[in-house]
Computed example of a mutant assay.
Amino acid sequence: MRTTVQDVMTTDVATVNQNASFHQVAELLISRGISGVPVLDDHDHVVGVVSEADLLAKEEFKQRYYGDDYRPPLRARIRHMAGSEGKGYDKATGETAGALMTSPAHVTAADVPVVQAARLMDRHGVKRLPVIDTDGRLVGIVSRRDLLRVFLRLDKDIERQILADIPPDRTWTAPQGLGVTVADGVVTLSGVTGRHSEAIAIVRMAENIDGVVAVHDELTWRYDDVVEIPAWGGA
């Protein structure tokens, strides 16, 4: 069985209401030692995420425009507000979590495989994903660190699962005839299968097991039933 977000997520989630002040958000991040939190509306729906970067953007803005008693000309401020950075200006001048947050939030569901959640984080460049139920309410949060725990399985547990996952009703080599060694998550498969296709299936099955870092294929077979289609070419 594949590990899902529910298996690794944290359910004790630090959150802020969208009306929370800048200082409330900052104090929560510092006291909990975290870099970001989900922002909820009054019905516990996730409406965004506010992070250290969002708070620092405001502080940088304040120093740029108000530090050392400096204030740009009115024309420059109007131009900044109306230009391509207008959205950044609105966030930087925001006073509540709702104004400072990044929205909409990238979220996931509890039954999503951890691999899918990891790809979502990578695609959007985020460090955490709020986990929501079918109504959009927060049920947990999953971080990059949580996902990495999947790769900390014991080697013997991975080996045991590989052998157990070979369906007994298939014509593959009996599990006791299959050589499986695992070292630091790297699996080496050896032995003889009846067919080439069976060897391919075993390798793919092993690659999809949680905790497997890589698979070294040393399998051989008695009958090659994999037909390679030649490249198309004219006469």
Rank of each mutant, 00 (worst) to 15 (best):
A20D: 07
V215D: 10
R32H: 11
G191C: 10
A105V: 02
V192Y: 05
V192H: 09
H23F: 12
T11D: 08
Q63P: 00
T4G: 05
R153L: 12
G185T: 12
D157R: 13
D169W: 14
V112P: 00
A117E: 00
V114A: 10
S190I: 07
D225E: 11
Q6C: 09
A76N: 09
V186H: 13
A105D: 01
T181M: 01
A76E: 14
V182K: 01
R32I: 00
L178A: 08
D155M: 10
L148D: 02
A20T: 04
D69Q: 06
S143E: 08
I141T: 05
V131L: 05
R75L: 14
H23G: 13
A57K: 06
R137H: 13
E218M: 09
Y66L: 12
L29V: 06
Q63D: 04
E198I: 13
R144G: 13
T220N: 10
R204S: 09
R32G: 01
V115T: 14
V226P: 02
K156N: 11
W232L: 15
F22A: 08
D122W: 13
L219N: 00
T15C: 08
S51R: 03
G194Y: 03
D217F: 02
G140S: 11
V39A: 01
M121G: 07
S21N: 08
G140C: 11
L29P: 03
I202G: 00
T193D: 12
Q161E: 15
G136T: 11
N17D: 15
M9P: 01
G211K: 06
M101H: 06
P130N: 12
L120I: 13
V46H: 02
T220D: 12
P72M: 02
S84E: 14
Q18I: 08
E95S: 13
V8L: 15
